[in-house]
Design a protein around this nucleic acid. Sequence first.
DNA 1: CTGAAAGCGCTTACAG
DNA 2: CTGAAAGCGCTTACAG
Lengths: 326, 326
Amino acid sequence: MSRQITVADVARRAGTSTAVVSYVMNNGPRPVAAATRARVLAAAEELGYRPNRIARALRSRTTGVVGLVLADALNPYFGALARHVEQALAGHGRLMLIGNAGYSAERQRHLVERFLEARVDGLLITSADAGDDVAAHARAAGVPAVYLHNGPGDGETPLVTADNAGAVREAVAHLREHGHRDIAFLAGPQDIGPVGRRREIFQEAAGGRGTLLRSAYSRAEADALIRRLATEGAVPSAVIAATDEQAIGVLSGACAAGLPVPGRIAVVGLDGTPDSAHTAPTLTVAGQPLETMARQAVDLLLDPATPHPPTVATLVRRRSCGCADR
Amino acid sequence: MSRQITVADVARRAGTSTAVVSYVMNNGPRPVAAATRARVLAAAEELGYRPNRIARALRSRTTGVVGLVLADALNPYFGALARHVEQALAGHGRLMLIGNAGYSAERQRHLVERFLEARVDGLLITSADAGDDVAAHARAAGVPAVYLHNGPGDGETPLVTADNAGAVREAVAHLREHGHRDIAFLAGPQDIGPVGRRREIFQEAAGGRGTLLRSAYSRAEADALIRRLATEGAVPSAVIAATDEQAIGVLSGACAAGLPVPGRIAVVGLDGTPDSAHTAPTLTVAGQPLETMARQAVDLLLDPATPHPPTVATLVRRRSCGCADR
DNA sequence: CTGAAAGCGCTTACAG
DNA sequence: CTGAAAGCGCTTACAG
């Protein structure tokens, strides 16, 4: 691998200056005569010129890279969000640096610091807990940030949230249509963040009649919980899980314990992850518009003036609630 | 946000030169007197100095960033691989640029080109089809590349694969232990790549006695296939799915069609994704060592001399094959 | 052990 | 419309 081809090489071959090469490669900011432009393009092509984004970034102070710090891409809720964020960024010609913080505030800070060193043009934070306000850190460095899913909500940093209230209310109303009066809510270990809010909203919507269950936000823990409830004879007839992960765990736990879904226990999730469409039985969800949320967050990051109407959850009737197969 | 703090600022405050600041920040390559070092560190701390990796990269020709091009992070097999790759890279202090090619050879080429422009230190390719040899493109640019999961296998670019043969054989042997004689194999639409090889190996292992089924590598298609088979009365008593995605689709399709798993149809997957542990019923898999594969690929990328013993699949007995619950 | 200075490959005022 | 040259913030020979 010989020395890399630079603007100087292209300029020489095209019989022009490096400035003009730059103007051609970037379509601006100065106009270039059509003939000159053609010569430059030809020279670049012939030499196999590949612009060095690093040099460009140093000079222009913009890297074209956005950093996404997220809790855990293996959780399909975050994974789907990440996927849609990448797609939205690609639509704007941006590259994505990704870092999983794995529910650790320290690792989250570390990642943000590394991303700032890498001079990302912006930071997207999709975190499980809003432990400390990492966006403030970014802002102090002059880097715009947007929270997606969860944030301190102090109005300083834009925040795109799920429609927590709408999702819970849709789920409760739908289960009532199926005749359920005593609905259980499977919350997380503590009521923090947007998912914590879902518990509050549930208790409002249920008018104090609901049972409260708790497990970690994981399939394994929700699965174990249902098995335990089965041995104790304390299985509710309907459960709304704060997250799809928990709902899926309820499904596998119910299966293991021999509890028919939805016959013995109806289940509804509140995320609307892609996974929910292919469980056994298929999972009814009050689904969040994950793609819209991701796009909105990206648009907001790239242009803070973007309007961002509140997200709205939609009920997706599948089989776990008692609806018939489509 | 005022002007950014540079090595020059730190040097001035520490009463030394920028060279020394660099030596201190990088722990080399020249030694620095302890007292000087302390002054530099103090100055950097006081000024809130944040090294500019872009400038560093331009000069040192190394960015500390690795690009991962993968088929689709929403597929848990690729998603888990990506997660483990990131973890392995983080262990080496590297950042990860990620791009989903989504089964499009063109988008894959585009991503590789963008990553090369961004001057990644290396490229990891986890692709569904080895359409064209993008690693050759990287190598031509002087950037090392490693294929993970699938590659042209011409020996030019290192390749870390799953243990396809081992997985299929374990699955067949185990289903035989359960008394199954006629085992069906759910292959992809065509037999390409490593997953395509699984079909060949199956036919060897089954001694020509197996039924061949086909569907896209997705939950939805496998689900639809099983429902159709149910209406036709052509459901096999045991099926090995080429991918966990398909196996999970079989589970949801069987549930929808009222076919008990494993009673009416036993199911085994060949990936060992995290998802397989929490299906209903839980999915027995001949699992691939995804974390080891990811780590190996990263080690190989960073140091081509790393030994890489062949991966070995392990049978994980769960309920879908007919084994009792743990 | 330390300093002065060149140079990585671009972009962008500035001057023509 | 085009060119000559400065400068982005580092690292690294080179000289002391």
